[in-house]
């Protein structure tokens, strides 16, 4: 007789911590990448003046960009780890939709973006919509 292997399901707090890790690293990565691109300036204008090589050079010589990419890579590995322990039908919609809201908060706090009522409404609508789509 064979006994099917079933990994123990993580508890509520462990599951929350795994999803929080994805949301936190993803938001940090997005904010750092956005800050890097703002510090570089309009890529279309750079490309018009210095060509595609100049635009690529401008991005690749910005340390903030690499910090953002490093956090996005961390977010990807956190997602892989979470999917290894939790059902993907929980992890994917929860992390995708929560990241939209945390990005709006972080953009207001750290990037000083004008997140008005229109943007909050859009973020919340897309957040609920993504949850429905990915669930």
């Amino acid at each position: 007789m064979t006994i099917p292997f079933s990994a123990p399901q993580p508890g509520f707090w462990a599951s929350t911590a795994m999803i929080a890790a994805i949301v936190l690293t993803s938001t940090t990565g997005e904010v750092l990448t956005a800050a890097a691109m703002k510090s570089i300036g309009d890529l279309d204008e750079i490309r018009a003046h210095s060509g595609l090589g100049g635009a690529i050079r401008a991005v690749l010589t910005c340390p903030l960009f690499f910090a953002g990419v490093a956090f996005l890579a961390l977010a990807f590995f956190s997602l892989l780890m979470a999917v290894n322990h939790l059902p993907v039908s929980l992890v994917a919609p929860a992390s995708a939709s929560l990241t939209l809201v945390t990005n709006a908060i972080a953009a207001k706090l750290f990037l000083k973006e004008n997140v008005d009522r229109r943007r909050w409404t859009a973020a919340v609508l897309v957040c609920i919509g993504v949850y429905f789509l990915a669930h």
């Binding site: 997005e30 956005a34 703002k38 309009d42 890529l43 990005n103 973020a123």
Partner: peptide, 12 residues
């Protein structure tokens, strides 16, 4: 897109 628009515009 992030070089000429806000993150809260591009993400949604």
């Amino acid at each position: 897109a992030l070089s000429w628009a806000d993150l809260t515009f591009v993400m949604p």
